[in-house]
Each structure stands twice: as C-alpha cells, then as structure tokens.
Nucleic acid binder design. Structure first.
Lengths: 336, 336
DNA sequence: GTAATCTATGAAAGCGCTTACACTTTTTAC
DNA sequence: GTAAAAAGTGTAAGCGCTTTCATAGATTAC
C-alpha cells in the first residue's frame, strides 16, 4: 500500500498562473526579481492550489536539505528537555527542519546515519560520534558543531558548552571559603563525558589554590547516574571514609549520594553536606533542597544551532562558545 | 559558501563494479534476484567507495521518505522525555528517520510543516494540529496516528493513549474508600488536552458511584502548570474553601498545589492531602512524596510508532490502543 | 532439436525542482 | 535616435535514484 502523496507540483502552479516553472521557482525562493503582477498571480495560484514544495526534489536539485541533524547517544536525564527545546526552537526560527538520531541502543542500529546525505549540518552532543567520524566530516568540509564537548585534537570544529571548570571551581571555592569545609569528596561523571572532566579539574584547582591536599580516596565514580552514585557513596560510608561534603558532578548523582547518606542514618547537611551541578528542576524540591551550579542548557543549545547555521551559511563560526554558570545556594550544603 | 556534499553516487559504484546503476539499485533494495557473483562485486564496490545512498534522490524517485514526523506543540514538562525516548527508539528500530516539529512558538513559524511532502506518516501529539489539517491528511490517505488524544468526530484515525478515565476513577475510588475522604477538589489540566477531560470524567464517575455530590466550587484550573495551579489553590484557601484532598490532573499542578498549601501555613496531608497524575520522576522526591497515577508514557510512544509503521506499510492499524495505569500510593494522601 | 520459459541485466524514462543560459522587452545614456 | 545596460521570463539540462520494459543467455519441456 505504500503510496505517493505528492499532490500539487510546481508545474501545476506554473500552468495555473500562466508562467513557467522557472519563474515560480524564482518566486518561491526570492532568488530573483520578478514583476509585481506576475508575483501576485503566482501567489494566488499557490494559495489557490495549496501548493507546498516537495522537499526531495528541492534537495536533489538545490543541493541543500534545509535540515539540521542532532546526534545524541541516548535520550536520558533531565538534561535533555531544555536542550531539545532550545535546539528545536532555534532550528525552526532559522528555517531548518530538525532530524534527531539517537545512536545509543547498540551503537547506530537505526536506519540512516545522519550526515552529509540528509542534512546541511550536524550538532553533535558529547561523545555520540566517534572521533574518526568527526574527522571524516570535517575533512569533507561538512559543517558540524559540538555541544558539550571539545574538538578532537587538531580539529577546528566549533564547540559550545558551559563553563564547567569555572563553575566547579566557584562551587568548591565557596565550600572552602564560606563554609569552611576541608574534606571535600568528588563524584565523577560519566566516562568520556567532557563536562565531567572539566568539573573535576575545577575541583582540583580550587583545592590547590587553597593549599588543600588532593586525596585520591576522596574521588569516586558517579557516572552521572543516581544508582551508581548511591552505590559509590554507600561504599565510602561503609568503609568509614571521612568527609564533610560531597561534590557530585551532576544533580542526578547528587540525588544518589543523598539517598546513600540518608540510608546510612546520617543527616544532610549536618553529618555530610551535598552539592551538585546543573540545577535540574528536581533540585529545589529535594529535602534538603540541593545546592548546585546552574548550567544554561537551553541557551547553549540555541547558541549551538546559531553557530551551526552561521557555519552553513557563511562558512565560519566562533571556535568556542563558553556560557557562564551560576552558583545556586540552597540548604544541602549547610547554613552559613 | 553553501556547498554540495554529495560524494559517491550510485553511478560510481556501478562503474566500479562493472554493472549498470539499475543493478546496483536492485542490490541495494533487495528488490530483485541478482547473481551471487554480481552481488559480491557490488558489495565490494560499495564498501570500497564508502557509498551511501542520497536520501533526496531516493525519495524523489521512490516516493517514500523513510521518515516519520512528530508534531508537538511545545517541548515542555517531564512528560516529554520518556515520550521522545520511546518514539525515537521505536522509529530507529523500524528503520525510519525521525523529524520533529514544535508548532507552538506563535503557531508554526518554522520552516516546513511536516506532512506528506517530507514524511511517510505523522505522529500527532494532543492538539498540536488543528482538526481541519487532520481531516485534510486523512482525506488524502496520509497515515497519521494520534498520541494522547482521540480522533475528531467521524475520523477513523488510530489513537494511542493511556486509560485516563480509569486511572482517575481508581484514584478517586481509593481516596473515598480507603481514606474516607468526602470533599475532593479537582484541578483541571490544559484546555484542549484530552488527557485532562478524561481524567475529570473519571473523577465525576467515582463521585457519582459513591453517591457523593458533584460540587462546581471544588473544580479549579491547573492547566498542567505549576504556577497556575498554585494560584488557583491559593485562591481557594484564601476564600476559605474547605476540602480534604486535592486531585490534580497532573503532577506538575500537584506540585503547585502543594506549594500553595504550604505557603498558606497548612500541612500536607494532615490539613489538605494532595494527589497527582503521571508519576513524573520528581513525584517521589517531594515532601511528602506524591501519591499519583503512573502513566506508561514511553510505552504509549513506542506503540504509537508501531501503529504508524503498520499503517504505512500495510494500510491498517488498531483504531484504539489504551494503556493501563497504575496507582502509586505515597505519603501525600495521608496514611491508612 | 525447436519452442517456450526463466533469469540476470541493461537502457532509458522520469520523480519535482533549481538554475545557467538565452531571449525579448524596457529603460537609460548620450 | 541609437547603442548599451537592465529587467523579466522561458527553455532545457540536470540533481541521483528507482523502475518499467526490453534483451540476451540459460533452462526446461516435449
């Protein structure tokens, strides 16, 4: 039963308006001056017939797909909502269609990988694409913008992300200076996720600049995941590890940490304080409400689209767009 | 600078393999028997050259886009994550590309509306498309599946949604029978959102079947929105409206209600109990944890895709798919 | 052994659109 | 008034693929 639903064609419009298809095309693309009278006749024919240009033909003839691709590994976590909203809105505003491809389930089982054959450019989220593929595309001159990751060594690909290191640094500075904490544990994020390594770097810098020792034992894996973080922290407590506060690389793992602490019969923040990163919606509803670093995710997403569109249309874009974060102080870090 | 990135074409492959383009096409589409030897040669050429069929030409010539469209009004609320994950995954598994269009910001400002020109079928979420448009597509024989809404009168369009009425009915039955509540307020959802009206119907049925009066004053608007719900409930309290429990049409408005109650210096659930609908992640982290009705959103999304694919490929689909909900009892409704 | 039937393949006609080029009017320049 | 430039439009050649139709060779049937 698969049928063809190509209704009105440009030819119908041309006939209806008494002009050639070329003129109609020019009218539709504003690509050339055409007489006001003719324009009116075409416009009339278009709305009369309810004509809508067929993408396929347009793409095939024009070489542009008018579509942006978004490559993600998995649609998961609160992170996604604002990101998607930003990308979707910005793409629409720029006049581009949006194609989404989740590569995760078994690494690209899906139909057609996004790329130069079906999009004009790609937004690549974190490590959803292997470096090799990134290199290939860059090599081919295909526009790509990286979101929440930096370019592989030697590749001049525009990146958009938040000031992870700075945000983490600010947070830890605050914990040390304003709260007087000394033993600060850190829960790493997912492997390969750059946001995480930058946050860790910020943590270390803050320690260093205050003359505090960096203690391997105070570093654990949270994997940006509630369950995993919970297990790690439970392990710490069971082994008698002493710490005053846990800095989780994201709010999800902070939640896991909070759970673990409570399950161990300890109080947050009196026995162990907890802080996170991202400021997901949930953060302020936790008890106690979570102190965290707010990351402008939607904004970053919009900017990534803007950069990509610039890259496509003008051939150049800013190499690096870094968005500032903001400290959100709530009760989980203890009171002043 | 807008360039063309069409690399290797089918012609290159044909030449490389010493066959005609027709044969290559047949090989690629498994559409016809071809000699094993030839097949091998073509296969070799394909991987040698790294050939990937260009979508545009394929679509233009073949009449199928191999893409599914998702039309939503706005990417907002916790609801979206599981839904999108489900749709994206299912589409990928079925070998379809996924196009997403958010119609909301000013009602379709975006580039190209999704439809028969760029997709093989559409998933339409709630009231993101006017009935007129739905009718037009159905009329044209274009495959569409409705998600979380029913078809306009007289349109035989497959629908996938959850058992809203039943879920609400179960909840209210529970509140009456197990908790002994009598004055149960209801916070409506967004206008035009069918989930909401079914839930309201369930609420009324439960009242009726227990011989409780339906009191207009106990109905308010929550709009599926935290802020709006909060204002409504604050108004109720200020006006001295008496109620034992508030049934919010979704968890977001339940949160708003909870805020309002607390702000008024009352306790949940001792002074006013609160229950919601959906079971978003946040629900169990609220204090007190929210009693609610769990809706299988991701499952519904997957089924919608499955129905759509069936509709596209075989021409028929189930008229109605209704997914069961589940009562999730937590502390916000009071203890037994 | 000849005719009828398959099988594997090629040639070529589009699919609906854009665009280079050519052409006919107008307009402008002097 | 004529030559040169500009403006508006048509003609037709593809874009890369699928698919119908035709054909050559290999089987089968008798």
């Amino acid at each position: 039963m698969p049928g063809k639903f190509q209704g009105v064609t440009i030819e119908d419009v041309a006939r209806h308006a008494g002009v050639s298809t070329a003129t109609v095309s020019r009218f539709l693309n504003h690509s050339d001056k055409i007489a006001p009278l003719t324009a009116a006749r075409i416009q009339h024919a278009v709305s009369e017939l309810g004509y809508q240009p067929g993408m396929a033909a347009r793409v095939l003839a024009g070489g542009k797909t008018h579509a942006l691709g978004l490559v993600v590994d998995e649609i998961k976590g609160e992170f996604f909502n604002p990101m998607l909203r930003g990308i979707s809105a910005a793409a629409g505003e720029a006049g581009y269609e949006l194609l989404i491809n989740a590569t995760a389930p078994g690494r690209r089982p899906a139909g057609f990988p996004l790329g130069e054959k079906n999009t004009d450019g790609l937004i690549v989220f974190t490590d959803s694409l292997p470096d090799k593929e990134l290199r290939r595309m860059h090599q081919a001159g295909f526009p790509c913008v990286l979101l929440h990751r930096s370019a592989p060594a030697g590749l001049a690909m525009p990146c958009v992300t938040v000031e992870n290191k700075r945000g983490a640094r600010d947070m830890v500075d605050y914990l040390i200076e304003q709260r007087g904490y000394r033993r600060i544990a850190f829960l790493r994020g997912a492997e390969g996720h750059e946001d995480s390594s930058w946050r860790e770097r910020g943590y270390r810098e803050a320690l260093e600049s205050h003359g505090l020792p960096y203690d391997e034992k105070l570093i654990g894996n949270g994997f940006f995941d509630e369950q995993q973080a919970r297990e790690t922290v439970t392990g710490w407590i069971r082994r008698g590890l002493k710490m005053e506060v846990i800095f989780a690389a994201d709010d999800d793992s902070a939640i896991g940490a909070m759970l673990a602490v409570k399950e161990a019969g300890l109080r947050v923040p009196q026995d162990i304080a907890i802080v996170g990163f991202d400021d997901i919606r949930l953060a302020r509803y936790l008890s106690p409400p979570l102190t965290t670093v707010r990351a402008p995710i939607e904004k970053a997403a919009r900017l990534a689209v803007e950069q990509l569109v610039r890259l496509i249309e003008t051939g150049s874009a800013d190499p690096l767009t870094l968005l500032p974060t903001e400290l959100i102080i709530r009760e989980s870090c203890g009171f002043a």
